[in-house]
Nucleic acid binder design. Structure first.
Lengths: 125, 125
DNA sequence: GCTTGACTTGGACTCGATCTAAGTGAGGGT
DNA sequence: ACCCTCACTTAGATCGAGTCCAAGTCAAGC
């Protein structure tokens, strides 16, 4: 546990936090000016393989990192401004995939992304 | 409708077709050697805005283009080899998101990606 | 036969992400 | 104490996907 890793972990703390690697780097630099982008990427990669942080790809631009890895959840994304909220749908979408639609796959996981407009963007439209 | 656009449309034809822009370009070149990458991107972009083709981002690498735009469907992806199948879950995942989990958003769309192992990769594992 | 305008081309460029080679520093062994 | 080692970090190069732009092409209309 080095100072750099602690800083990255600190930046990724809280609910509904979904920062890009670059945003993580910017905030980490504020706390530890000499930290490099490569280290941020390395550390994020380790946190992901440790299962402490999830990668989410809600837009096709930069990946985002979600510290809320311990409670399964899905994402609600504003199509206009990109705001992201964690959501917990009722029911289990995995159960909605009938055997006839599994093509022999061993299905182990499901990702759901809801898209729409956040209240602010809906008001502006 | 130019020769270039016809070629791109021809390449994107069939079920369970999910090519990257680069694969589309490679196949288009086989039919029309002088077609440029920019034109492939332009044409794919137009097909997407016309609603004839869907962009899917099942991995965080290149976008893929799915000509099966007219019947709503979701995707089943092999975590090991990247194979993609179109699937049609029972039920409507949109209905599974209670109002209390919508945070005032106007939710209009939902994307579901199932992940697992395809029969071949499961056998190899 | 010219002009116009839409389409195409190729190359430069952007951006996110990864890789590499060199630098740093804390422990461990002697 | 001293040095060795090895993991970690750094800066910058590189990569890959995608976009941009200036110049080129070509067909339709005047």
């Amino acid at each position: 546990m080095t100072a750099q890793r602690r800083v990255v972990a600190e930046v990724l703390d809280g609910d509904h936090v979904h920062l890009t690697a670059d945003e993580v780097h910017t905030r980490a630099v504020a706390k530890l000016p000499e930290i490099s982008r490569a280290t941020v990427y390395n550390t994020l990669g380790e946190l992901v393989s440790l299962g402490e942080v999830l990668e989410v790809a809600t837009d096709k631009r930069a990946k985002r990192y979600d510290p809320n890895a311990h409670r399964p959840h899905h994402h609600l994304v504003c199509a206009r401004c990109g705001a992201i909220r964690d959501v917990h749908p009722s029911g289990n979408p995995l159960a909605d995939l009938p055997d006839s639609e599994r093509f022999g796959f061993t299905v182990s996981d499901v990702e759901v992304t809801y898209r729409g407009l956040c209240p602010d963007c809906a008001a502006a439209a």
